[in-house]
């Protein structure tokens, strides 16, 4: 019988421990997969021209949504409504900018923080829910906001808020999302492997054992939700200023489906996976713009195929190929 065998590459084993790094080759082995994507992201926009600049900005902002989705998932809360955070952040900064007339940097920062507080407060009562039940509630939340804004006609009602001041400086407009995105990506990857992150993962695996280990699970869920809300609300707040408008479409299904699809496509729980996923999906959907609403169908088909046929995701696959040798052995 022939069996497939996977063995770590020698260089991986040697460079696993920081003390063992002894050659440039090993340092490069560890650095390249991190440095090359970062450099690409920093240099590409200047090489590609202004249309792709816009695509990269949107990718980074959507990437933040996907990263925050993944953080929420790593504590065991699977959200079907990332658009909720996005919309709240968008509306908050729209409110500060247009209705209070604050300058752009203030409205983004205030919009992010106050939006995150609102999201955390609203989600606080439902954080105890598990599994499907949390997903159901998050599916309902964006719809809930749309209906409330429609019925009460606050914040511009069905028209939304238009005429919001633009960011102005195209360098800032480009590099702030890129830096925030990269900072969140590496920050979250670091966080999840720290002791704090291990507690978060343990809550997903078995919250009762975490409780009986003397840890206030609810407080952790609140903190985690606040971080998630900050990232997603920033994404919404920034987007509002890019489009110079915010409307009910900020709560649209696209913004819930895209982060979810990116995460599933790239590999749930790895953060790098969702990041890769968004940088595949957002440019793809730009090419698919001509198909109009069929884009959402594409997302759902990709999501469906990935979840059913490729549950592992792209990133774990790439990682395995990079670190391991596969060979067939006679058993």
């Amino acid at each position: 019988m022939i069996r497939k065998e996977r063995i770590d590459r020698g260089i991986k084993v040697r460079s696993d421990d920081i003390y063992a790094i002894s050659s440039y080759r090993e340092i490069l082995y560890l650095l390249l997969p991190r440095v090359i994507p970062v450099l690409c992201l920093l240099l590409l926009p200047t090489l590609l021209g202004s249309y792709y600049e816009r695509v990269i900005i949107i990718s980074c902002l959507m990437g933040l949504l996907a990263l925050s989705w993944d953080l929420l998932a790593s504590i065991g809360l699977f959200s079907l409504g990332q658009a909720f955070f996005f919309g709240v952040g968008g509306y908050a900064s729209g409110f500060f900018s247009y209705q209070l007339g604050l300058p752009v940097p203030y409205s983004i920062v205030l919009g992010t923080v106050s939006g995150a507080l609102v999201c955390t407060l609203l989600l606080a009562p439902v954080l105890r829910l598990k599994g499907v039940y949390f997903s159901i509630v998050t599916l309902a939340f964006p719809l809930f906001f749309v209906r409330i804004i429609e019925s009460t006609k606050i914040l511009g009602g069905t028209e939304g808020i238009t005429g919001i001041s633009p960011i102005g400086n195209s360098w800032i407009e480009l590099y702030i999302p890129i830096f925030v995105f990269l900072f969140s990506l590496f920050g979250l990857r670091r966080l999840i492997n720290s002791d704090y992150g291990i507690v978060l993962q343990a809550i997903r695996d078995n919250d009762r054992a975490v409780i009986s280990s003397g840890i206030n699970v609810y407080a952790y869920k609140l903190e985690c939700t606040f971080i998630v809300s900050l990232l997603s609300c920033f994404s919404g707040a920034f987007m509002t200023h890019i489009y110079q408008a915010v409307g009910l479409s900020a709560f649209a299904l696209d913004y819930s489906l895209l982060p979810l699809t990116s995460a599933v496509l790239g590999g749930v729980g790895t953060f790098a996976g969702p990041a890769i996923g968004t940088f595949i999906l957002v440019p793809l959907s730009e090419f698919l713009r001509v198909f109009g609403t069929l884009r959402v169908v594409f997302y759902s088909v990709i999501l469906f195929l990935c979840i059913v046929l490729l549950p592992e995701g792209i990133f774990p696959f790439l990682k395995r190929k990079y670190h391991q040798i596969e060979r067939f052995v006679e058993v």
Binding site: D195, I198, R204, D205, S213
Partner: peptide, 16 residues
């Protein structure tokens, strides 16, 4: 147990 974690990392939770 916390299945995703190595055995010794399981003890990080109470230690934290």
């Amino acid at each position: 147990p916390f299945l995703h974690l190595p055995a010794y990392k399981n003890l990080i939770i109470p230690l934290y």
